[in-house]
Design a protein around this nucleic acid. Structure first.
Length: 621
RNA sequence: GCGCCCGUAGCGCAAUUGGAUAGAGCGCGUGGCUUCGAACCACGAGGUUGCAGGUUCGAGUCCUGCCGGGCGCACCA
């Protein structure tokens, strides 16, 4: 049930009747300032220029054709021509009653299934093997996972992809280093050891030309399938996977082994992809036009050519610091491929390729032919993805081979995590902060808080609570902020018990559950919802807005809308809790109505917090 | 230098994409527990939205120019 789309329909119809359907496309309905209205329609203001009449006059005209008495109080015109609408209490009650009676809708918090089901690839997390996961992976992992969860919740076929860095130049160093250490490949190393080998190898690579040369040879050996190099590589990868599984489990990230498809997966496809791409951008096979394009000052059409020894894609609109055309390099001078090539190959795989083996189709059991692909990586890669997407479009590889429609390519970029000093988040000694250690600290700090606030909680329960509170606080603090901005990490703020924080929301849920436990009886499916106090009305209206919030989140890929909504829902519930006794309500009817409101609020929180944000809720804390 | 992003209350952030008197939170001040969990609620103070122009009935939001900050800009990912 979507309040906004219902109102949109009503207003569109009225506008169409009043002025003609060509003006009724966008009735400009949005939630209003609560001081004036639940919703407002601003169409009259927008139409005034087109129609050459005063907005207030047009608003009055719209009202004459508006049929809305079943949902709303009498609409009013305010200011320059806003139409204010207040939902009628009777209508709200009826909607809540319907939601309660329809067990399927209730289990979804009233969120509708999508009417345009599509296959969406969400590419996120993407850690490097041989390195411990660090804060740099945090935002990508949790934002990507939430986006994937919400898309799946409304009914899209979601393909999660963990594009792990497992085949780049750096593995040459690592294999070379492993050779020196004469590592026993019989038993798994520890990830922390791998991490330090990595640092040592990088150091040697920088300072020892002999080592660097041998490292490059090791890359060649690896890519050509040398058994010893492969054996070391698999050994490293195995431990890395174990480590990632552990972190994903702690963070409740839904990625599984079936979702992992690293750079190595695409490595053998790269020569072919480069060839196909060159052909696709060959200007209908007319090589002379490539020459012409290369000579010209500005790039007017995408083409592939050798430049300074490297194979490059040149695209319109990209220039370097000297205003010269900026290439997307797809093959280095030494013949090796880079991440741009792998990204292009991955896009080709996700959109175009027919898949033959179960390994290829996983995690689905059929061809993908993605309709939409979302990358959750940091904002610094914006230009890279813009170029990769433009390349794909120039080659017409963005056309879905089944539907013939363009694939939606989106970079859901996010800002950096900063320390409390506003500079990039590092440990005191300047090292990157490891996720394992960060999460351990979160749980420890949460335990201190829990011990203080609820000393009577048994130790075993306290540990569970501390874990749920600590991990959720870290994730929620990140998710509640607009992803596009840098985010300042602060233990004190995220673990605060008041304000828009994880602990506050969890506490509110625990209070809801506490009431429902004490009430004992199960609610009958049919309950008359009474919204006679302002707090009940406010809570009821908010519950019914859940669907609209989910739509907004998916429209902008911004989970913080959902966080703000749930925080406000909790605020509404707290006010309700304060002013409206539930268990000791004046009459059995009101008691039942208030129990129902509590249950619906708890239901929405459970879906939003647990199912969509992937956070833990607690019956008691 | 070129390009992208950002600048909102003391602090960290919102503002449904051009709509009303810019909102909550933390912190500060005041009031509320013999009633469902006070980890809560209610009330108050706090703003020239970096600066200056422009477009518009209407600008935190769009355009131009400054000031300040971040990031990216050829073989790393």
């Amino acid at each position: 049930m979507s309040i906004e789309s219902l109102l949109r329909e009503r207003f569109s119809q009225a506008i169409g009747l009043a002025f003609g359907s060509q003006f009724a496309n966008d009735p400009m309905v949005k939630p209003g300032d609560p001081k004036f209205a639940d919703y407002q329609c601003n169409a009259a203001l927008a139409l005034s220029r087109q129609l050459g009449r005063s907005p207030r006059e047009l608003a009055a005209e719209i009202l004459r054709h508006l049929e809305i008495a079943d949902m709303c109080e009498l609409p009013t015109i305010a200011g320059p021509g806003f139409i204010n609408v207040r939902l009628s209490t009777a209508w709200l009650s009826a909607q809540l009653g319907d939601l309660l009676a329809d067990s399927a809708a209730k289990a979804r918090g009233g969120v509708k299934w999508t009417t345009e089901q599509s296959t969406v690839v969400v590419d996120y997390a993407g850690p490097n093997i041989a390195k411990e996961m660090h804060v740099g992976h945090l935002r990508s992992s949790i934002l990507g996972d939430v986006i994937a969860r919400i898309l799946a919740f409304v009914g899209h076929e979601v393909v999660r992809q963990n594009h792990v860095g497992d085949f780049g130049t750096q593995f040459g160093m690592l294999i070379r280093q492993a050779g020196d250490l004469k590592l026993d490949t019989g038993e798994l190393p520890r990830i922390s050891d791998l991490d330090s080998y990595y640092k040592q190898a990088a150091e040697r690579d920088k300072n020892d030309p002999q080592f660097a040369a041998e490292a490059r040879q090791a890359v060649v050996a690896l890519q050509s399938g040398d058994p010893e190099a492969l054996r070391l590589w698999r050994w490293i990868r195995e431990e890395s996977r174990r480590h990632c599984r552990e972190i994903f489990a702690l963070l409740n990230i839904t990625l599984t082994q079936a979702d992992e498809r690293g750079e190595s997966f695409y490595s053998h496809r790269l020569p072919e992809v480069v060839q196909l791409l060159s052909a696709a951008l060959a200007f209908d096979g007319d090589g002379s036009r490539v020459e012409e394009a290369r000579e010209s000052e500005y790039v007017t059409k995408a083409f592939v050519t050798q430049s300074q020894g490297a194979l490059c894609v040149f695209l319109p609109g990209y220039v370097d610091k000297d205003k010269k055309p900026l290439p997307l390099i797809i093959r280095k001078g030494d013949g090796a491929y880079l991440y741009a090539t792998t990204d292009l190959a991955a896009l080709y795989f996700r959109i175009i390729e027919d898949k033959t083996t179960p390994e290829e189709t996983a995690p689905l059991d059929h061809n993908w032919h993605a309709d939409r692909i979302i990358y959750t990586t940091d904002a610094r890669q914006a230009q890279h993805f813009a170029m990769v997407f433009d390349t794909i479009r120039a080659a017409h590889w963005d056309i879905n081979p089944v539907t013939r429609r363009p694939v939606v390519l989106q970079h859901a970029a996010f800002g950096s995590i900063l320390g409390e000093d506003g500079k990039p988040f590092k440990t005191r000694s300047g090292e990157t902060v490891k996720l394992r250690e960060l999460l351990t600290e979160a749980v420890q700090r949460a335990e201190t808080v829990v011990r203080e606030k609820n000393p009577d909680l048994p130790v075993a329960a306290r540990e569970l609570v501390a874990r749920a509170v600590g991990i959720s606080a870290v994730k929620y603090a990140d998710l509640r902020q607009d992803r596009t901005t840098d985010y300042q990490f602060s233990w004190d703020r995220m673990l605060a018990l008041e304000g828009n924080t994880g602990p506050y929301l969890q506490y509110t849920f625990a209070r809801i559950r506490s009431i429902l436990r004490k009430a004992g009886t199960k609610l009958p499916p049919s309950v008359a919802i009474n919204l006679s106090t302002p707090q009940e009305r406010d809570l009821g209206r908010r519950i019914l807005q859940f669907n609209d919030v989910i739509e907004a989140v998916l429209h902008d890929l911004k989970p913080h809308y959902l966080c703000t909504y749930m925080y406000e829902l909790c605020g509404s519930f707290s006010s309700f809790y304060e002013n409206c006794p539930v268990l000791q309500a004046a009459t059995p009817e009101i008691r039942q109505s208030r129990l129902a409101l509590s249950e619906l609020a708890g239901m929405v929180l459970n879906i939003g917090w647990h199912d969509l944000l992937g956070l833990e809720l607690l019956e008691e804390m």
